[in-house]
Design a protein around this nucleic acid. Structure first.
Lengths: 328, 328
DNA sequence: TTGAAAGCGGTACCAC
DNA sequence: GTGGTACCGCTTTCAA
């Protein structure tokens, strides 16, 4: 009933534990016959190595900590799936922690994960303005989907400015002139970048439209309400560039419930291109990111770091593309 | 730079490691002053216990293995979120593994997770017909969302038959007479239960409708195609009870793309009530489950088992409710 | 080629 | 109340 240890294998073969250990790990000089015998017996007995004991000896445990806002966010769900697949390839496993974008939670998470003995951490930091945050991390780590301006962390992220730019330019080119944007009230790389791209497109198009830049701040749940309030308080607009698809869906739902037609009266463009964008009504125009790539690439890099391999590129940046559908 | 151990704390205070250990864990007889001193110094030095060493001594590591089909499935995403929150309350963490509903993957997962030293496992088994499967699990475990007929496992699941029943009854009561259902080609508790409920409702309504029971088998991606093929091959129907919302969305999308009107010509009812059901077009009528409850309850039970507490109820069953919207 | 023994960071038993 | 020490399962010198 009790777990089979290396000792049991040794005893049953009248060998020493050291020989068994070497045989099992293909190390040192062990007679080929002995090695075979040991491996067979180990299999017969159903021996499984105790990772904790190994980890205690300074070996890796095969655990990767993942710190994100929320695993139900379809964007992160896809990213995590990519991570999971890549990790599995290298016999690593994922330890998932949600922070709900709360800084304190993140601090705890970093602390806890390291106590659990993770070999590395994949993190989408709550606040990417102060690199100091990452000081608490004593294991290798990779930043996912965020970017610190002044630091040389390993990062895998998206060209957010380009994303904001192509979304806005598309709206301008399809004849919209009063484009507002709704962004969360957080100073993170994605909001900064998307805002920048939005403004850049307006600027480039005409001085006039540049002056009409309006950035509304909101949580995802209130995105629709915020837009509505803006419209009611004399503001006008014929297009909305939403922070992401959740925002876009919320906005479209509320707009339509008030009898406004999307995209005829108001066009809406989202971001992330979540799988549901093709099912909603109207189908959602969105800036598409390869979420699987984000997960895979970051995980691959982290595992390389853990294994002490050379990292050629410390930064991988993805160019988003616009998926034009019916909403704008 | 190196990690602070209990030894460092002991040395810096000129105490023995045993005293420090006892002080830190509030165990045995230790002078209150000593205890205070030790705790303060430990904090100062930034001591963090090495969980691996503890685990090696037979203590729990604080790790829960989670084995599910796919974390991007919104249903599981919500369940996992509930688990994560509950686990965090008790200072436990989640080790996530996707199986893609593949049996071999599940076998590996069970094996790997235990090697990583998880204290327990939360599992939605790929196949819930043969309890033998679970033999490989040597730690406490709880079945989530599935139910083994002949076994006394701890389980948290849904009354699937009731779900299938209320969905179908609703369609019948709103005047539909030719109701088909599309289910995955897997013999798992949810499909068995939903099918049963579907047939029960038809039976109860009229012998005639009972004879019209049609169960199509399909993967989520092909759900639409399968229904279309059925319609084209002379079959007629005015309503579809879909296995879940993903199936429903796929069916609706394809039906509409062929010019059919939902729900006017064909009503569609889904299952799970994923968050996007209110954004799609038409909004989705769906059998609603409390996913958070599933996650919380199963995790709470598992942690109780791990801590050796008495389990009053080995089974928790949830009654679903129908959320009527526009699709049927 | 093989074995004995130290040690990783803790816990717990047993003396003192 | 405190310290010494064996031990958890495994790796890794160092001798034999």
């Amino acid at each position: 009933m009790a777990r089979i240890t290396i000792k049991d294998v040794a005893k049953s073969l009248e060998l020493s534990v050291s020989t068994v250990s070497r045989a099992l790990n293909d190390k040192g000089d062990v007679d080929e016959k002995t090695r075979e015998k040991v491996k067979n017996r180990a299999r017969e007995l159903g021996y499984t190595p105790n990772m904790m004991a190994k980890a205690l000896k300074g070996k890796t445990l095969g655990l990767l900590g993942v710190i994100i806002d929320d695993n139900t966010n379809p964007f992160y769900a896809e990213v995590v799936k990519g991570m999971e697949r890549e990790a599995k390839k290298h016999e690593f496993h994922l330890l998932l922690v949600n922070t709900a974008a709360d800084y304190e939670e993140q601090v705890f998470a970093i602390e806890f994960l390291q106590n659990k003995g993770v070999d590395g951490i994949l993190i989408a930091p709550v606040d990417d303005t102060k690199p100091v945050e990452m000081d608490g991390i004593k294991v290798p780590f990779v930043i996912v989907g965020r970017h610190f301006e002044k630091s040389d962390f390993c990062e895998v992220y998206n060209d957010e400015e380009l994303g904001g730019y192509i979304a806005t330019r598309h709206l301008l080119e399809s004849g919209r002139s009063n484009i507002i944007t709704v962004q969360p009230d957080m100073n993170i790389f994605p909001t900064r970048g998307r805002s920048l791209g939005y403004r850049k497109a307006l600027q480039e198009y005409s001085a006039e439209s540049a002056n009409s830049a309006i950035e509304l701040k909101s949580s995802p749940e209130n995105a629709g309400k915020v837009v509505l309030e803006y419209l009611e308080s004399s503001g006008t607009c014929d297009a909305v560039f939403a922070y992401n698809d959740m925002y876009a869906l919320e906005i479209i739902a509320l707009l339509r419930s008030k009898g406004m037609r999307v995209p005829e009266e108001i066009a809406v463009v989202g971001y992330d291109d979540i799988p549901y964008s093709v099912y909603v009504c109207p189908t959602l125009t969105s800036v598409a990111l390869d979420k699987d790539w984000l997960g895979r690439t970051s995980t691959e890099m982290l595992i390389k770091m853990i294994k002490g391999k050379k990292i050629r590129e410390k930064r991988y940046v993805q160019k988003p593309v616009l998926r034009v559908r019916d909403s704008g």
